[in-house]
Design a protein around this nucleic acid. Structure first.
Lengths: 137, 137, 137, 137
DNA sequence: GTGGTCTAGACCACC
DNA sequence: GTGGTCTAGACCACG
């Protein structure tokens, strides 16, 4: 599929799944109306327990991102793309805030901090270019 | 004291204590050889259970940051400052990596991401200047 | 299970658990990869508090003897057997050193001391033979 | 004085003091009727808290090993030597038993165990000879 | 079911 | 007063 679980991440696994599904919808990797992978399939792929996937999917249904298709499975709800795009910024902002707050408390030199940040941004940029060269978004 | 606990943070409380003590040592807020607050005192101040502090302090002892002074309390170990300064970068780097990895996967626009980052950096810079104006490091 | 707690021993209970688990791994009573008893189970069996077991298990994880199997329990880490075998000698040596140092300071007659020692060794030998007769090592 | 405190020993400090005083009496290093060091003096020498010495001395008084000499201090009680000599074996035996029991449980090879023991015995023998060459007991 | 964490409250040895 | 240990009982995430 389109993402992996970071077992070292403090974020709960099902939360990671929720996030990533939302991101996929926001980025149109999952189109509205499209069927998402079955619980079993995603669980196998991510090597996590099916119950964990169930939990994530339920949360996404409750949030209006997914909608059940009788006898078929779950599909991305109509209107979910827009919603997820706006949530995306919030989610990232919230995480950024926490990390930078802690970094600020650490008393680290601002220059070093900026260097760390630039390094990360560059890594993303590199990955994006590589991705674009394969198929345009 | 010199920090607070974020009860909403997914990071375990004792881990937050460990982190903050390390940061304090790294930033020379706690000097080598200096006695740290007693278990009971810190617990009272942070409004957490003494056992939680005990656990953090024990971890710091195991890590060579603190050293016991028999019947008196715990003091910052000699050589801890240097160690904590290098650990500080690692800790922040690790967190950054996680957050930026997720941000990258989110497919967010690189410009928006950079804007978010700059906002955070500016906030830290502002806080630091304010701090410097009170007493120079 | 394979050991008991000596509540009169000055050694902390969780340290006794750590010790005995290491010995069990060293002696191949617990094989690498094998699941160890759950926290609750061992606590029930040894009639100690689960938290005490938690503490011991955590220490063993930190020491690389145990490794978590997500959602399943804790297993003996690969490579732990060798490590525990070498630790075993160190642990016993350290205890021996203490006792014999005190014995030496006591001014006891060397002959009497040797007699005490031989008595203990004989006891162990007897027990071992008895053990071997049940199932070969 | 005639002994040191092993701060790594699991035995409580005041217990170590008690033991060592008894051993000194048993070995006639402290003769019956002889004044023992004052609380302050011993505390300073062993680098322990005077209260700890007080506690040890009280225990020795309760055990009939020491007896107060009005306005002067504490002296070795008459009859203490014999008593301490018999206690000495018991004390060492008890410790030996514990250590060897634990060693037995460890499943260590009997040959290796015996080697460890012989090493310790040899160390004591060497020390004793050296001591005898200075002044005969 | 599993381990991980936290709280509350107790006792001990040592200063 | 200090830290060290243990118990009892609770909640959470994960399988």
């Amino acid at each position: 599929m389109f993402f992996r679980i970071d077992f070292n991440n403090r974020l709960a696994i099902y939360d990671q799944v929720v996030r990533q599904i939302k991101f996929a919808v926001a980025g149109a990797i999952l189109a509205e109306g499209e069927l998402i992978p079955s619980v079993r399939e995603l669980a196998r792929e991510l090597r996590i327990n099916p119950n964990t996937v169930v939990r994530a999917y339920r949360q996404l249904q409750d949030g209006g991102v997914l909608t059940p298709v009788r006898g078929t499975g779950l599909a991305v709800a109509t209107g979910a793309a827009k919603q997820c795009r706006s949530e995306r910024v919030e989610l990232i902002h919230a995480q950024m805030e926490q990390v930078f707050t802690e970094a600020g408390q650490s008393g680290i030199d601002l220059g070093k901090l900026r260097a760390l940040v630039e390094q990360q941004l560059a890594a993303i940029e590199a990955k994006e270019k590589h991705h674009d060269s394969r198929h345009s978004t």
